[in-house]
Nucleic acid binder design. Sequence first.
DNA 1: ACCTATATCGGTCAAATGACCGACGATCTA
DNA 2: TAGATCGTCGGTCATTTGACCGATATAGGT
Lengths: 217, 217
Amino acid sequence: MPKLVDHEERRRHLGAAACVVLARAGSVGMTVRAVAAEAGMALATAQHYLPTRERMVRAAIDHLAARVVRRARGIPADPVTSEVIRQAVRELVPLDAERSFEARVWLVLTAEALVDAEIATLLAQSEVELRSNLRRLLTRAQAGGAIDARVDPRDEAAALATLLDGITVRVLTTGLDPAEAGEEIDRHLARLARQRDREPLTGGAGAGGRAESGASA
Amino acid sequence: MPKLVDHEERRRHLGAAACVVLARAGSVGMTVRAVAAEAGMALATAQHYLPTRERMVRAAIDHLAARVVRRARGIPADPVTSEVIRQAVRELVPLDAERSFEARVWLVLTAEALVDAEIATLLAQSEVELRSNLRRLLTRAQAGGAIDARVDPRDEAAALATLLDGITVRVLTTGLDPAEAGEEIDRHLARLARQRDREPLTGGAGAGGRAESGASA
DNA sequence: ACCTATATCGGTCAAATGACCGACGATCTA
DNA sequence: TAGATCGTCGGTCATTTGACCGATATAGGT
């Protein structure tokens, strides 16, 4: 037997390269050659592990999901405070370079999903998962008294999902300043807690001067 | 002189065809041949009016903007009631087939804007215009007492823009039911009016935030 | 040392695509 | 009627792209 390479590792590497290409050149620019070059291997070598362009796109989705999930695990959720929810929401919005990168890939894939049924299925699944996680967070936060007991966790989870997608699109396409986006998110979240008793969030939420990030022109 | 054709009319026709192709086949599938075929003319004829693919994309954007603007004009805005705002918002979300078509084109173009600076500029302009229109509606509604006098029209216009983009993405990609999307919109709008004769807004959103940059447009 | 299975890669092919050119024809004016 | 001007279109070219094949190198196992 020869070198014996970890195929899955290669595929993950190619998936990461595919994400880079997607973020840089979009759906049109993501060619098998560009992905291979980004991964630092010959065209045929890349195709040895991911034979078709479609497989490369799937690998990119897997890589993207893995990144988000790994970062999401970093958030402690034992006592679900409003700050935890705030962190979770900010984790999914392009407020810094890393998240902006992921959001760009996501947006490209989302548009591609309109034509490619398989991509649509994968993205829809992750959205369902996201919404269910948000709902769970909200329910636990409600149990802990962190947010208003009268709001419906299901509705609010949907509203948060809408907020995430909307903010993401606006930051990426219109020149919406990440700092303003953060304030907009905080205003939304403040509403969840404000009705509980008078104004628990006004101090920490809005006023904080957030560090901006480079952001695109 | 020969037939003397209205060039602009031809370009509009091609722009409409380009939108159809974009909605059907996405950015990758929008080839000059596909647009020409959709428009019912020979390839060279189409290229006679729109020489490059880029020009065709621009024509598609123009067509899309024209459609939305024309429909927006149909909304009476003399007394800006909350129902007027509701109509305006629903006008921009894929709740039926026609709007779904436009939203698909918009999403494809939005993703393309990440790579194409010119598309990005055009889309950003229309977003600024949209937000300013929303802000104007909110201000007038506030003057008429249709919504809470304490909310900041600028912030709420931004929140509505986010809501629009988010709902659009979720309806198109996840299988979000248009009916549920409508309810989600109504919940958002209800909040604007509810606080009018309800509880405190705790110092208002403007207090915490930096109220600078008056004319963001 | 030999051999087999695997990795890597250069080269190639058919199809598609954007762009271009020149010819034909229609139509209005002088 | 003749000429000029413009619309229309078939055909073509260079390039790119996805996919494929066979050759070569390499690293184990026997």
